[in-house]
């Protein structure tokens, strides 16, 4: 149920996905708006991460995955033959549940994406690194120690570094899989503020188990249950007046 005035960024239709014989997604169809935050919620194992990873074809890495249906990004079905997956992934940033900075310096982490995109000029890289770290709300904390190991940062800082690293290549879409699940409330606040800022430039999809978080940051919310999309609507509608009983039960915590 996308409002008329939204621009569709990703159009998913009839997407089904199997891990071997086990079906993880069942005929998902949904249209994800541009420059909005869309939240995926649902009980553990319902396929949120799987759907998220289908959007940048990370599931291709797993043996025995078979996929049918379409994911259309700017009029191109990314599951067509001959799609350049490397370029696709360059246009879609991803932040993982567990922060995974490279065991390199803070600077090199952020500069990694631009570098593989061919940016060599030092001044240009410096600028990208600074802007991205500012975008990741980390600049002030690390500006004096860009050369120290990313692994010397705290968990929350590492996650913001991963966000900075993802936005350094200027993606159109940002996929975030439970980005705050391992963080303390203060770091979580920072990242939520960040998400709200970032949606001016990026279309964001966030998977979360935290209902308050979904309510705070997202414009649209999709509720999944055992591989099916149960309900998808404006966040306010989902949280105040859901159409489906299952959604209401889940949101109010009465899920059994």
């Amino acid at each position: 149920m996308l409002s008329e005035k939204e621009t569709v960024k990703i159009d998913i239709s009839d997407l089904s996905l199997f891990y071997g014989k086990k079906q993880a997604l069942n005929n998902i169809s949904m249209r994800i708006p541009e420059k909005r935050v869309t939240a995926f919620i649902g009980p553990s194992g319902c396929g949120k991460s799987t759907l998220l990873r289908s959007i940048n074809r990370m599931n291709d890495l797993i043996d025995g995955v078979s996929i049918s249906g379409k994911v259309v990004l700017d009029n191109v079905n990314i599951y067509d033959n001959g799609i350049n997956i490397v370029n696709l992934r360059k246009r879609i940033g991803m932040v993982f549940q567990k922060s995974n900075p490279f065991p390199k310096s803070i600077y090199d982490n952020v500069a990694y994406g631009p570098r593989i995109n061919g940016v060599k000029n030092k001044a240009e890289l410096d600028e990208i690194v600074e802007n991205s770290l500012q975008g990741g709300a980390l600049w002030d904390e690390v500006k004096d120690r860009l050369d120290s190991s990313a692994l010397s940062l705290s968990g929350g800082q590492q996650q913001r570094l991963c966000i900075a690293r993802a936005i350094a290549v200027n993606p159109e879409i940002l996929l975030m899989d439970e980005p705050c699940s391992a963080l303390d409330p203060i770091s979580t606040d920072k990242i939520e503020d960040l998400i709200i800022q970032l949606k001016e430039k990026y279309s964001i999809i966030i998977v979360t188990h935290n209902m308050q978080q979904a309510g705070r940051v997202s414009d649209y919310t999709a509720f999944f249950y055992i591989g099916e999309l149960i309900e998808y609507d404006k966040t306010r509608k989902i949280f105040t007046d859901p159409n489906v009983k299952q959604t209401e039960d889940y949101i109010t915590g009465r899920f059994g």
């Binding site: 990370m58 890495l61 992934r89 246009r91 879609i92 567990k98 990694y112 995109n117």
Partner: peptide, 18 residues
């Protein structure tokens, strides 16, 4: 080496070799 680093690089658009 944690596979998550491999995923992070690939998600940034690195080739497998990179």
């Amino acid at each position: 080496v944690p596979g998550s680093l491999n995923e992070a690089a690939l998600a940034l658009g690195a080739t497998k070799w990179q």
